Amino acid sequence: MLFLRGTNNRYRVADEDDVIFEAIQIYNRTFSKGEALTSADKAKDCIKLKLAPFEHEVFMCLFLDNQHRLIACEELFRGTIDGASVYPREVVKSALLHNAAALIMAHNHPSGISEPSQADKVITEKLKAALALIDIRVLDHFIVGESVYSFAEHGLL
């Protein structure tokens, strides 16, 4: 249970709107344009907050400059409860549009299972290869379920 301090220094139980408002405030403080993503944990927290609520698969990219500062966070593809089609051409177009030097990919698994599927591994390799041709580094690919899986932490990048 979450309590908030009211106007008379008295505490009250937070309702759903209060919790959502507070989550948005945290998100804005930690995930704003120009913010350097200096650790995997910081990126994970931001991505989980963004992707956890969806009941369908969403694939997004964080586009970063050469100092790993956030340029843009863009939802690129939406799917169904168990999959989303991801097109490397569209990811490359968005990366060039944002003049990104690096990026972090992320998607959710509405099932709650964070382990990557074979399709997740294949598309990660395709995207990494396509982006390497234009000198854009893929720093990580996160899968959000009940926990957050990092391809980089598991040696898959």
Rank of each mutant, 00 (worst) to 15 (best):
L4I: 13
T7I: 09
N8Y: 06
N9A: 03
N9L: 04
Y11P: 11
Y11M: 07
R12I: 12
V13P: 08
V13T: 13
A14K: 09
V19N: 01
A23E: 07
Y27L: 13
R29G: 02
F31L: 14
S32G: 05
K33D: 08
G34A: 11
G34P: 06
E35K: 13
A36V: 14
L37Q: 02
S39C: 03
S39Y: 01
K42M: 13
K44I: 00
D45N: 09
L51T: 09
L51H: 02
L51P: 03
F54A: 14
E57N: 00
V58H: 00
M60Y: 00
M60C: 12
C61P: 00
L62Q: 10
L62P: 02
N66Y: 14
Q67E: 14
Q67G: 03
H68N: 15
L70R: 10
L76W: 01
F77E: 08
G79Y: 08
G79K: 06
D82F: 05
D82C: 06
A84V: 15
A84D: 02
Y87S: 09
R89V: 10
K93H: 10
A100C: 13
A101W: 08
I104T: 01
A106Y: 02
H107G: 07
H109L: 11
P110N: 07
I113G: 10
E115W: 03
K121Y: 01
K126W: 15
L127M: 12
K128A: 13
K128Y: 15
A129K: 13
A130Q: 10
A130W: 05
L131S: 14
A132Y: 03
I134S: 02
I134C: 14
D135F: 04
I136K: 12
V138F: 07
L139Y: 06
L139F: 04
H141A: 10
S147F: 01
S150T: 09
F151T: 03
F151P: 02
A152I: 06
H154P: 00
L156P: 00
L157F: 11
